[in-house]
Design a protein around this nucleic acid. Structure first.
Length: 573
RNA sequence: CGGGCCGUAGCGCAGCUUGGUAGCGCGCUUGACUGGGGGUCAAGAGGUCGCGAGUUCGAAUCUCGCCGGCCCGACCA
């Protein structure tokens, strides 16, 4: 390709509304353009990168026997009603009514459709299967953000494993785990595999593949010693034991005028440090008010609350609901001696067995001290609800955990039989007995992977693509295209590289050298061969890596050969 | 869904307070010079000022409504 004929609209200024590095650079370097909130066009460069990622994914999926499909994006309400997700997906699903009045949804994932196809499977002899597709997904995100990282329309590789025994699922899950590691490493992404909450997908086990980035929306904790890692929505930690005093025979009420936060009580002489306090939160869980108790210095992870209780719909109670439930305002709430015995009390495990604690008295501006959790609070359900903090000991090996901000680029789930049972996909086993197909589901966001690579591979001058997914591997920069000898030497080198299968672009534009160097660096092409009159006088071309390092001078006759060799060798890395 | 901010040329912005000829930088076009890090000079093209009402002799500017976008939070495989 010749740069002069390409649509590569680079911008000299940063777009005003781009915050994330990947957003800024992908727009500025001419890879993507926004069409509307959360919807982006991939320009030729962006499409090339996504194609390369896609090809890697395809190669690796085919390598474990995956079969590629192309499923519809238009889904009848029917199949989603069967799985129950027509309701549970709520506003996140794009929906419309067709001219005949039928409800239609835009596919946000394809468990239902694949399970429908899987209902044609009849015998265990046809299993296992791995089915996949690379297709557009639609999700009406409440808040698209960070360019192409969180969008409403995007490309996803989704695969589904079909088995009739749970060890078959385990095997397919393991295959995907390995293949995902290879895919991400070939894309130049350093990923951490972490245990995750399965959320709305259901299923027993799930692992997310995370890339560290300040543009990420997920926080994970990981152990550098034993490798144990998890999403903060899921992971727990060991806690240093707290030595409680003997406490008091009964809770004692004391005045705390104007003190409504954990910090207020902690800073009060007659109060107690945060780890000696009980934090009382009021939530509405599937329409029922409930109390959620945590240690004063601990934060609630709502996902853990959802996972632990199985509720669908959850929100913090509003002021009126709090007052109605406890006859006091937030800031003075507690779970001791509740007047309404039906109020459900959920408590974090870190409170178990604690004595001599301080909590609200359910009377404005009063607290209780000397609270013994076992004696004074009737807990309906103990759960792990607290958010792990950096430095807390790893639950497996006691090493202090690290906490990092990350982007989720892949997620693999053991789904089980939820969808196959709902959609009637079963096979006969060796004994002629019908068994629901056991499914796994495995996703990779393609554009998100591209953006994640940019997040981790850039400098002040622009993007620095890994060779494996760069839009072009080499740019041949012709410094003065009006000089015939230079122009011809550049074109000859370009043709030679092209002939040897190198992905090369010839920058033949009549621009100043600085413009071309800047653009090449902004776009992030891994290697640049510079052909200019000065070099030609000496019979050389200059070859530099975008990543840095010394420029090398190669004599003209050897130029194509050594560049090819160099690029081929670097593809493997 | 709550909070904050913003829509003026392809991009980045000024003008709005105090109503009166729509501006600047970059980019773009043509020409000349120039040619190893976003060069110089000259001449140009390009705007329903997000949309719709209203006030007014007159609205980018004031008022109301709507639409769109960004950021924080909530939410989210």
């Amino acid at each position: 390709m010749r740069w002069s004929k390409s649509f590569i609209p680079t911008l000299r200024d940063d777009p005003a509304d781009a915050e994330a590095v990947s957003h800024r650079l992908l727009v500025r370097a001419g890879f993507v353009r926004q069409l509307m909130s959360g919807v982006y066009s991939l320009l030729p460069l962006g499409h090339r990168v996504c194609q390369k990622i896609t090809n890697i994914v395809r190669e690796e999926m085919d390598g474990i026997g995956g079969q590629e499909f192309k499923l519809p994006a238009l889904h009848p309400a029917d199949v989603w009603q069967k799985s129950g997700r027509w309701e549970t997906m709520g506003d996140e699903m794009f929906r419309f009514t067709d001219r005949r009045g039928s409800d239609v949804g835009l596919g946000m994932t394809h468990e239902e459709v694949f399970a429908t196809l899987a209902s044609e499977l009849r015998s265990y002899k046809q299993l296992p299967q791995i089915w996949y597709q690379i297709q557009t997904k639609f999700r009406d995100e409440p808040r698209p953000k960070s360019g192409v990282l969180r969008v409403r329309e995007f490309t996803m590789k989704d695969s589904y494993s079909l088995d009739y025994q749970s060890d078959g699922l385990d095997f397919a899950f393991g295959q995907h785990f390995e293949v995902y590691r290879r895919i991400f490493s070939r894309c130049g992404l350093e990923t951490l595999a972490v245990e995750a909450s399965s959320g709305a997908m259901g299923g027993s086990e799930s692992i997310e593949f995370m890339v560290k980035s300040s543009a990420g929306e997920d926080w994970i904790a990981s152990c550098t010693t034993c490798g144990h890692a998890g999403n903060l929505e899921k992971i727990t930690s060991n806690l240093a034991p707290v030595e409680d005093g003997p406490g008091q025979d009964a809770p004692e009420k004391f005045a705390t005028p104007g003190m409504h936060t954990i910090e207020d009580i902690a800073g009060f002489d007659a109060g107690a440090p945060a780890e000696r306090q009980i934090k009382t939160l009021v939530y509405v869980l599937d329409g029922e008010t409930a109390l959620v108790l945590l240690r004063g210095d601990h934060g609630l992870v709502e996902q853990k609350l959802a996972d632990g209780t199985g509720v669908q719909d959850m929100r913090p109670a509003n002021d009126d609901e709090i007052e109605a439930a406890l006859s006091a305002k937030a800031g003075s709430l507690g779970a001791v001696a509740l007047s309404n015995p039906k109020l459900r009390v959920l408590a974090d495990a870190a409170l178990e067995g604690r004595r001599d604690m301080v909590t609200g008295a359910n009377e404005n501006d009063f607290h209780l001290r000397g609270v013994d959790v076992a004696r004074d609070i009737k807990v309906d359900q103990w759960l792990d609800l607290r958010e792990v903090q950096a430095g807390e000991p790893c639950p497996l090996c006691e090493t202090p955990l690290e906490v990092d901000q990350t982007i989720e680029v892949g997620h693999i789930f053991k789904l089980g039989t939820r969808y196959s049972e709902a959609l009637g996909a079963s096979v006969l086993d060796e004994n002629g007995k019908a068994r629901p197909i056991i499914m796994g589901s495995y996703g990779i966001g393609i554009e998100r992977a591209m953006a994640s690579v940019v997040e981790g591979n850039h400098d002040d001058n622009g993007i620095v693509w890994p060779v494996g997914i760069a839009p072009y591997e080499v740019v041949v920069t012709v410094l003065n295209p009006k000089d015939v000898a230079t122009s011809e030497a550049g074109a000859a080198l370009y043709e030679a590289l092209r002939g040897d299968g190198i992905d090369v672009i010839l920058d033949d534009r009549d621009e100043r050298p600085g413009v071309k160097f800047k653009d090449a660096e902004l776009v992030g092409i891994p290697y640049r061969a510079t052909v200019g009159p000065k070099g030609l006088e000496k019979g050389i071309v200059e070859f530099v890596a975008r990543r840095g390092g010394e420029p090398r001078e190669i004599t003209l006759p050897k130029a194509a050969g050594s560049i090819v060799e160099y690029v081929l060798e670097s593809r493997g890395r």
